[in-house]
Simulated scan of single mutants.
Amino acid sequence: MKAPKFGYTRVLSIDDAISALAAGAGTAKAMGGSQSLGPMLNLRLARPAQVVDVAQIASLRTVSRTAGWIEIGAAVTHAEIEDGIHPPLAEHPMRQVASGIAYRAIRTRGTVGGSLAHADPAADWVVVLAALGARVVVRSPRGERTIDVDSFMLGAYTTVLESDELIVSVAVPAPTSATHWGYHKVCRKPGEFAEASAAVYFDASAQRARIVLGAADGPPILLHALAAEIERKGASASDRKSLGAAVRAGLPGRDAIDHKLFTACVERALEQSGVLTGTQHAE
């Protein structure tokens, strides 16, 4: 199919982008790398009257570190993170995650902000940023606000973003010597959408312990009790029976196969993290 008729505006500043979105009065849509919006336009699942291209806004393509956090511009691409061209992310877990997103051609254009705004439940950044406890910074004619990632996604392809709001950056905690992390997903073949995924992130110095299920047909599911128990007891709280019970509680109504897939994802993410043995996983 072909996309429906729409206007196209390329902007070079955040202020111009916000003005264009506001002028659309709910009919304009921001576009980053167009790796999600483009197909939806062609399938006529999205029908904006105006597309506002924000990919070339220089201030959205920067990465900086301050006060234990790394701020990633919304237009930073997956490939830029994968290649480690931004020093603050060169040793960050996000680099490995980026290398497994879809295919290289998609990674060279797809953006962090675009992925979050699209809010596909199976997307890698959706679950990984939830595990990191990220903060999403958005701007509109009313000013700037910061949204905890836990409350950002309301459902599949649905977020708390207002029609005139633009994601300008995502802030993630900088890794420390106490950081342990892992991410595992199940796909039919490399590059395909995940059928199940799980991300774990532990940092004793920041008192952060998070285990998150992704690709669950809605917002990421946090297994708070399991993460807290593993943080306290270590390996004794991470046997397969305990993991399976936590997954079933987090995914009620799903069939046994799904529970096994998600349990395997949690188990392998924990194995990667090294949190059970006190050694940090790195690749």
Rank of each mutant, 00 (worst) to 15 (best):
L261M: 13
A105M: 10
A75C: 01
A20G: 00
A246R: 02
G214D: 06
V63L: 11
F152E: 02
Y201M: 09
R240F: 12
M31S: 15
P252S: 03
G155V: 04
E271M: 12
A90I: 07
A227F: 09
A117H: 02
R139N: 08
V137R: 09
M153K: 13
P252D: 14
I211A: 01
G110R: 07
I221F: 04
L45W: 09
C265R: 14
P93G: 11
G7S: 11
G155E: 12
H78N: 14
G278K: 06
H118R: 03
R240P: 00
R254L: 09
Q50H: 14
A235Q: 08
S99Y: 01
P141L: 15
P93Q: 05
A209E: 09
P252Y: 01
L166F: 01
G38E: 13
P175Y: 14
I101P: 01
P88E: 11
V128R: 10
T159N: 04
I81K: 06
R104D: 02
P87I: 11
A174I: 01
I106D: 07
L41V: 03
D124A: 11
G182M: 10
P48M: 12
H224V: 14
K29W: 04
P39V: 09
F6Q: 00
F262H: 15
G84K: 13
Q56Y: 07
R44P: 03
S273D: 11
A55Q: 06
G26C: 07
I106P: 00
D148E: 15
A131D: 02
M153V: 15
Q56M: 09
V266W: 13
T279V: 14
